[in-house]
Design a protein around this nucleic acid. Structure first.
Lengths: 221, 221
DNA sequence: CCGGTTTAATAACGGTCGTTATGAAAAATC
DNA sequence: GATTTTTCATAACGACCGTTATTAAACCGG
């Protein structure tokens, strides 16, 4: 009994998911959601609950609609195919929709409101500069015969940076140093080497001068 | 002439950097900054300008104080040592300060306010579930002889996830699909394989059913 | 001690956030 | 058609955001 709903709950959820994908959780306002879905605020509240509950629905929806390749990949007969499937599908999913690049999950906490775009660009530029330096270093290595003639300095630099970014995300997710070092060691195990005169070092812990921790003052309530 | 400043600009900047590191740019409020630095809002404005300018100062400060290992790494004689240095220092930097895990740069746009912590946890849990599935798949592969007895399924799973996360960050930074695929191919380049009877596939593009793009409705002004 | 000048702290600004009361409109039941 | 029930849109809520007048306090040169 009573008036019937005038919008398609599934479609509205999909539209909300796209906004969250692009702007992240905190970067998405109800003004954004209303504009993207065509549904006014009170209707969104009555249909999905508050913003957090709506976002959790979006997480589930994302898994259903965009990550169905994940269980498929796990079913491949060989682990190498599993990884190949996974990584190349990730490359696709992260670039398939130009209006919302990257991964919804990561962006959920990586993206922000439009007002923060200049700051995001500043970080993106800093990141890019580091990658350029790394590429130039690998180009030198290639010229020196330290890397095979067939190697691709640009791809290698992007690969190392991806590992570093992935480790940062994992650290934010609570990874221990030991686990991060295992990731680093694994990445290093795949590193191309020229059968040159100098024996290669193992991927043991690098002894670098790390900055000393500084006292962090008060903590919030 | 006039009254002299009562706080150390450099120390206050360091304290602000730590807050940004932990909470990200948008997640950090002036209430947070005042609490962490002991300096009232108007003083922060007069000393550093507005929030964005303060954050840019923090970016520069981060490079000076915490990334001095980066140019050092580039000076190593062999590219493999460069990468080893870089990756293991990254592992250290991302876990050295437990109150602000991860990388300031990435967190700058990945972290958020404390109110969003439940949502962040939800995404972290989803991420962890995926990694567990991957690890279990690699354990199976090891049992099947598809992976060497010496391989570490947990580290391999963390490695693949790190690559996926790194690609997501890079996609958000504007990487093309081709560049992401190069990263994926590099990660796959020397995947541990058992000299078994089945010949391995190359790292060519996986032909997977990708989700069809859906119409994105209105765009914001 | 006294203008002049810079910094400090209090408090308020307009705006937007997520959320919700309010009352009109629409459909189902009697 | 009247009543009940649910949904709809307008508008407002309090809280917090980044930012800034405003005023008092601390230091300078005379």
């Amino acid at each position: 009994m009573g008036r019937r709903r005038e919008f398609d709950e599934a479609k509205v959820l999909d539209a909300a998911l796209c906004v969250f994908w692009r702007k992240g959780y905190e970067g998405t306002s109800y003004a954004d959601l209303t504009e993207a879905t065509g549904v006014e605020r009170p209707a969104l509240y009555s249909a999905y609950g508050n913003k957090e509950q709506l976002f959790r629905r979006a997480i589930a929806r994302y898994g259903e609609r965009y990550l169905e390749h994940f269980p498929e990949a796990l079913e491949r007969p060989k682990s190498r195919e599993v990884v190949a499937h996974l990584l190349f599908v990730t490359a696709d999913l992260n670039t398939r929709y130009p209006d919302r690049p990257g991964c919804f999950m990561i962006n959920g906490v990586l993206a922000g409101s439009d007002d923060a775009e200049p700051v995001r660009q500043a970080l993106i530029e800093a990141r890019a500069m580091a990658e350029v330096q790394l590429r130039e270093r690998f180009e030198r290595a290639k010229a020196e015969g330290d890397l095979p003639e067939t190697s691709d300095p640009e791809a290698l630099a992007a690969f190392v940076m991806a590992i570093a970014h992935g480790m940062a995300v994992q650290a934010k997710a609570g990874f221990s140093r030991k686990k991060l070092e295992a990731v680093a060691a694994q990445a290093l195990a795949t590193w191309p080497s020229c059968p040159g005169p100098s024996p290669e070092r193992g991927p043991e812990r690098a002894d670098v001068p790390a900055p000393k921790p500084q006292s962090n003052r008060r903590r919030r309530a």
